[in-house]
Amino acid sequence: MEKFNTHTGLVVPLDIANVDTDQIIPKQFLQKTERVGFGVHLFHDSRYLDHAGTQENPDFIINKAEYKDASILLAGENFGCGSSREHAPWALQEYGFKVIIASSFADIFYGNCINVGLLPIKLSEAEVEQLFKLSADAKLTLKVDLPNNVITCGELSFKFSLNEFQQYSLVNGVDSVGWTLNKLDTIKAFEAKMPAWQ
């Protein structure tokens, strides 16, 4: 996994609550055996007017010219609810998003983001509201500093926090499987004590 240090990028505001993983990446695009090829289908049903995905929907905010280079998604509450498909963070990442900011995320989606190196940031409802207002007034660029857990925008700053190990893993690009495989002796010792039925 790539290391995540700081990122400065343009915000696109998607002010909709409960955006589920079927909206992020519809099921017909999950039939791949590779990790690539999902970005073009991100938000497919909202982003394209036709089923084949040849005609962009000009009203969908992500399609607007001023947001084409956005790399920070400002989202509504309970973002990523629904299925466990990691294809959702893959699609967001491949499209070009590095950071997602929301007041709440669905649990599985949140974990999946961390595991692929896409930074999910929880802020308070009031802070998210403030960012939505700022982004409505003018194009908003934020600097996200993960090691110091702070988002800055001119004079403004917003603190955020991550679980200690998740933060360490993202900042250092930890191979989580390799990390755990170093503990194989501990796992084997645990297995030796398990009851027969287990």
Binding site: S83, S84, R85, E86, P89, I108, G111, N112, N115, V116, S176, V177, T180, L181, L184, I187
Partner: peptide
């Protein structure tokens, strides 16, 4: 439910 990275983690460990 788990994501694919976690599926890999369970496979290996």
């Amino acid at each position: 439910g788990i994501g694919t990275s976690e599926v890999e983690h369970v496979f290996a460990t």
